[in-house]
Design a protein around this nucleic acid. Structure first.
Lengths: 340, 340
DNA sequence: TTGTAAGCGTTATCAG
DNA sequence: CTGATAACGCTTACAA
């Protein structure tokens, strides 16, 4: 591949002049500029970013680590980040940690070696993270996404999970539900799920009801009905559940219906995240919508500001309740209304 | 950030020796090696990949371009690619084209400047693509994913879309459907959708039925019922449809049910892709499953082989019919069975 | 306006 | 086994 020097030679100028023709075209006389561009074309010259990066000590690359792209929340966030980054002529180096702390460390080390200008991470548990500890000693700007801020000393982009969990709960309470449960994936692997649970407990207590223990599933994205069945029977059976993410909620709805339960007739189901698909299902998924695209965009913009040396403390982004057909009035209420 | 030279100085050796301690440890005496490692630790030295890349003229980075990460097919493929790439110590530079040919060109140009070792692309239409034309003049290895091979002269990883479209159709025919339609997003933007349609036509004709024109939606991932309604009424109403991707199918099912139609009672719906979520819905989505993870993995491995200089012609990967509750026996058949 | 020359942090070749 | 030195392709003072 041809380089600047050969372009310069062919154009009959020095390497410096050729370089300037590209980086600051107005510093070079139009005539010579033309000669240089022509030469470049003939040689199909293409500037070498690696060399630029080495020389300028900046890569214009940002390192992104998410737990898994199999969950649309992260994919949708990444989609937005990519668009935002490209708009500022940054590139994205993308990795997935598969929720494993050891992978997290390898990945970050690798990205630091690559000299990314900054990092956008979603870690398992920001309050207790080896990677973040190590990163504290570095001076590469770093920003969290989805992880609750506060636990870690790092800036974070996301919603107030605690408040959002409470909002979800209150929505169900308002409809008349009292026996509300919470369904989560492996809890220890998700600080945000924990916060959502806190919000739930808070709202339940405020309303005078006893919060129940989390029903914990083995996987983050797939509910298994058996774990929930006990809560669906007996005198104290649930009339509604909140899942800590949409995939869990969707698969739970499927399992329930397949087993002959009606949603929301027998059980109201709420999700959390607001992935695009949820709107199109039937019944459509009632959920707390995180502004995934805005989160992605804001993450990029905030990180770029940090890279420029501006210090900034991002505020939580607003979540929203998305109504959906998967939630209804609890059964006992409906009959009361019918007979009153 | 400290560099090799400062490590060397602190260890009291030359830069070359320090370098060797890392790249070929057995070429340096254990004692000095230790000194060097200690010095590196003290200075928290971290090798600079950018410099290595410049020097070695290889980045160990592969450039990936997909249309959009909002569609789980691409996200799931990317997830697998990332794992496979990291296993071979390659990194992924990820971009989205948003189905826009002009973006496709910018992106590829950018990646070539970055000197990625190879490219994995999913383009709108491989048979008629400016990017691919341009790339033909370059010597950066390039591999397509999902795009049908043959049209472009580029190797491609994916299933045989034609055969898969025919298989889908035959599945419905076998169940007794005769009035089968096909629903697609903007056709011109997807060579694979076109091939799937070809397969459908072929299978219909083989069975002695007249293929119908595609019902084309405005968006790739969201069906709108109004466009389909005409086909659902009249004497010639459809009993089954095949959608060119799962998102389309899922949203169509939702719309139908919301409008009071039963799936599959009034209309059987098939998808195409096999995204993970489809299995968990109710009714679960009957679809043609593309082995997304295997596609991602194979793409990486094939590209790495090409980078190593091995020439290889990948074979199409096998697709599979995934049974699902969204497809049933056509109504007129059911009543015939009932009264016979 | 253009040229000269010194790096950016590695690695590889060739001597010692 | 170790050291000096020359690239890799570009940018940027500083000079002319």
């Amino acid at each position: 591949m041809s380089d600047l020097l050969s372009v310069a030679k062919l154009a009959g100028v020095s390497r410096a002049t050729a370089a300037r023709a590209f980086s600051s075209p107005d510093l070079v006389r139009p005539a010579t500029r033309e000669k240089i561009f022509n030469a470049a074309q003939q040689l199909s010259f293409r500037p070498n970013k690696v060399a630029q990066q080495l020389r300028s000590q900046a890569t214009q690359m940002i390192g992104v680590m998410v737990p898994s792209l199999d969950n649309p929340v992260f994919a949708e966030q990444l989609q937005a980040m990519e668009v935002a980054a490209r708009a500022s002529s940054y590139s994205l180096l993308v990795t997935t940690s598969e929720y494993s702390p050891s992978r997290e460390e390898e990945i970050v080390e690798e990205m630091l070696r690559q000299r990314v200008d900054g990092l956008v991470l979603t870690v398992a548990d920001a309050g207790n993270s080896a990677v973040l500890e190590k990163l504290r000693l570095e001076n590469t700007p770093c920003l969290l996404v989805y992880n609750p801020p506060g636990n870690s000393g790092y800036a974070s982009i996301g919603v107030d999970n605690n408040a959002a969990g409470a909002d979800a709960t209150r929505h169900l309470l308002t409809l008349g539900h009292e026996r509300i449960g919470m369904v989560a994936g492996p809890l220890l692997q998700s600080d945000r799920a924990q916060q959502r649970y806190e919000g739930y407990r808070h709202a339940m207590r405020d309303a005078g009801f006893k919060p129940r223990p989390v029903v914990e599933m083995n996987r983050h994205t797939q509910a298994d009905l058996a774990s929930l069945t006990p809560e669906l029977n007996g005198p104290d059976f649930l009339t509604a559940v909140i899942c800590t993410n949409d995939l869990l909620a969707i698969s739970l709805m499927g399992e329930l219906q397949r087993a002959g339960f009606s949603v929301p007739g027998d059980l109201s189901v709420m999700g959390f995240d607001g992935i695009a698909l949820g709107k199109h299902l039937y019944p459509s998924l009632c959920t707390i919508e995180q502004p995934r695209a805005e989160i992605g965009r804001t993450a990029v913009q905030t990180l770029l500001a940090m890279i420029r040396g501006e210090s900034c403390t991002p505020a939580p982004l607003p979540h929203a309740l998305r109504q959906g057909e998967s939630v209804g009035i609890p059964t006992f209420r409906k009959s009361m209304l019918g007979t009153s």
